[in-house]
Design a binder for these strands. Sequence first.
RNA 1: GCGCGCUUAGCUCAGCGGUAGAGCAUCAGUAUCACACACUGGGGGUCGCAGGUUCAAAUCCUGCAGCGCGCACCA
Length: 912
Amino acid sequence: MSEIPKAYEPSQVEEKWYKYWLEKKFFSANPDSPKPSYSIVIPPPNVTGVLTLGHVLNNTIQDILARWARMRGFEVLWLPGTDHAGIATQTVVEKTLRKQGVMKHRDELGREKFLKKVWEWKEKHGGIIITQLKKLGCSCDWDRERFTMDAHYSFCVQKVFVELYRKGLIYRGKRMVNWDPTARTALSDEEVIMKQVNGHLWYIKYPLIKPDGTVAQDEYVLVATTRPETMLGDEAVAVNPKDTRYAKLIGRKVLLPLKNKPIPIIADELVDPEFGTGCVKVTPAHDPADYEMALRHNLPFTIVIAPDGTMTADAGEDYEGLDRMEAREAVIEDLKEQGYLLKVEDYTHNVGFSERSNVPIEPYLSEQWFLKYPAVEQALCAVEEGRIKFYPERWVKTYTHWMRNLKDWCISRQLWWGHRIPVWYRKKNSSGSQAEARRPDTGCGEDQTIDKDIWVDVTPPPDPENWEQDPDVLDTWFSSWLWPFATMGWPEQTPTLKKFYPTTDLVTGPDIIFFWVARMIMAGYEFMGEKPFHNVYFTGIIRDKLGRKMSKSLGNSPDPLELISKYGADALRFGIMRSAPQGQDLLYDEQHVELGRNFCNKLWNACRFRQMQGGAFEGEIEPSLLSNDDKWILLRLDRAIREVTEALETYHFNEATQVLYRFFWSEYCDWYIEASKAVLQGNNEARKANTLAVIDFVLSNTLRLFHPFLPFITEELWQGMGFNNDLPQMQGGSTIMYAHWPKPFDDDFKEFYGLDESDEQLAEARYELVRQGRNLRREYNIPTNKKVKFYFKPSEEKYSLEPEVMRVLLNADEFIIDRNYQPQKGTPSAHSALGELYMPLVGLIDVQAEKARLEKELQKAKQELERAQQKLSNQGFLQNAPKSEVEKVKYRLNESEEKVKKLTAALSALGI
RNA sequence: GCGCGCUUAGCUCAGCGGUAGAGCAUCAGUAUCACACACUGGGGGUCGCAGGUUCAAAUCCUGCAGCGCGCACCA
């Protein structure tokens, strides 16, 4: 007898096998393998990151796909790594350095020292998430782990920048950008999150200036604004040219309150006469729309808000140095005092917030680098025409909509942590011609103005003392978009790149469809001339029970590692997968994980049960000895194999787990194992051995079906049960990881073992009878542990009921088949198409109770009969419905007819 | 404003053209020998509303309502 513990204890098991897999290099991808390739690149988590449930969902899916592919005979590369995550990382490190008292602002340290600190920090804490992914069981090829700031990767980023620059797709310009005043950097449009804010609409009077230059005392235009502080930078008031109310004012001037500065009234189409007063204040330097207008009307750009969000000297000495929010209060106060504020209304509107700092974005005029996206048309068509497939498909629309409305991408960031822009500017007073001689040729079609004072190349200029490098770094996503090939050795045509690019599947969240997915597709076509992946699977977003996003500040984000130590990694994986419908958000509840734990335990004990039976493992199945129950479970297994495989093929992971759950728990454990006990406890040795062979066959297949979902426990059981004996030895060790994926039974197999649909029908009818018998016990309050006798009067003799099995399933003393059984009047009975079941009770006959019971049953049977009759009397149904459907209804009709007949007879036998 | 998604048992969700399903919760029973992280039985739903297509609709189509998300320069 083995000493397997009663309950599954995951912790040591998981550690043991993960170590084993690593030692044996089971995760390594071999580019020279003759097998077909299957590859995934991990969406690189931030180096600063710790594992969240989102990662669990995402990486479990990838692991399932990778493990499944290995079992199907693919050469699998799952390439892992981390992202330097510019702003996120820099912010985190800045915060800790401030906390440690090392600095207040990074300027105190200077660029070099600060970067050294970040690298130190990265070396110390950067790997956390990688070890956490290992705990989850991820089968990544860790020898190929990459980081977006590896030397080679950085080279790729620079190379790409230079290439795009020479193509004329990258340019520098002074534009209105989204400015994060806390991080003090520009952001891309995608990094701005619009939020609805309850604010106010302030109505301000701008007095008219008379033609003679004096200020009109009671004539004014009324302007409505949500940002009164920006008025300090106003350069005009705009009205719609078609707005008759103001037509005669166009060209006149108003006095800008507080600053006492005359500004013109201009006409611009952009103004909506319906909104507010129809007059808009124009702040060229602090509003994107106003910026556009200012360009059209040649207005000056007065900057009143500095990059750090405080007011500049141009705002006026009363306001200089105030934070923009403080300035707002002050301006309102002053306007009120001086009688310019007419009224205030409550007003909800959308305000852009920085995704990172969560502070309102400031539109800010500055010199930045921009990219015109390359390979747009190709990238768009590839998805639209299905060369790249999205799952679920609906994201295609989101993608194409974005792709058709692309705006140039602001790629420069005023940060230090990141890839520094490979551009040098000639120092003012230097004059070297030697650099000019080597200056890269822009080559490509666009007539980019050649500027000999700019050096753009992967290598710095040869006379660096005369040049100054651009201080900015590139947006993190400008490196991430190269991930599928920069990680594989590009631009060299490495064996890895040749074997594994394009990758097979990408698994990611829909929230980064623009940030990452779309850009990777464009980069793939631009630099590889080929798509980066065939399929993209978009996961849902994990929310808490109340539907809120997981977040640190809400404290509703459970630590997956705690869950793993409490329930086991397999349990966490299974629980999450079981509740993650395709592409739909999922509400997390710890109960899901508990369910996973329970399931693992069930699997554990089912195998424990098998081991306790002893006997050789994986004996041959002898077809002639198969019982009805054996055939039934084999057919169910076949069905489970088909359904799980199909679910995986279509990325329906929750369906796959649900099929497995149903098959293993309800069908195998609840019915088959229980039925098999009849044989195993008997003394027919041949049948016993055959039952064990069936059990082993089913378990061996089941463990394999489960392996991608539950890698640890399946390996433990696979090895423990000795199923590994006939497997090829992989790198000196055996493993379920490379056991072949179960195939559905073919016709030869079914014929050989005599498996037929009729077996299923019989088994199900028998189980239905058992259910009825158990119900009788319950109705008559016979405790489940009390033995009773059952008599059965079969309607025909031609089927084998397996009475011993029935006895065990009913937990009965005896199950007696007797065609001539004469029950005492009022004996509890159940009636099915197979026959009548009686449960004689000593001294406890209640005729009235039995009558009531039977009447209820009869009612049900009659209803069913009626429904079937109705269907079959419908000409349309008979003519149009498929034959199999009609057959099914006919079968049902027969069954219920039989039942009605029997119940009626039983009732009349009661004689009341 | 445009686009997308959701609405099924008390809760969380599957099902997406052929008699309404699961888990949890609930009620009743069970220390039974693989598992109390378990077993057995029960109760509970006119599948958001209104039309239409079909022999047949939770499932397909149209409209409406409620909730959520994304995109959009209305100050």
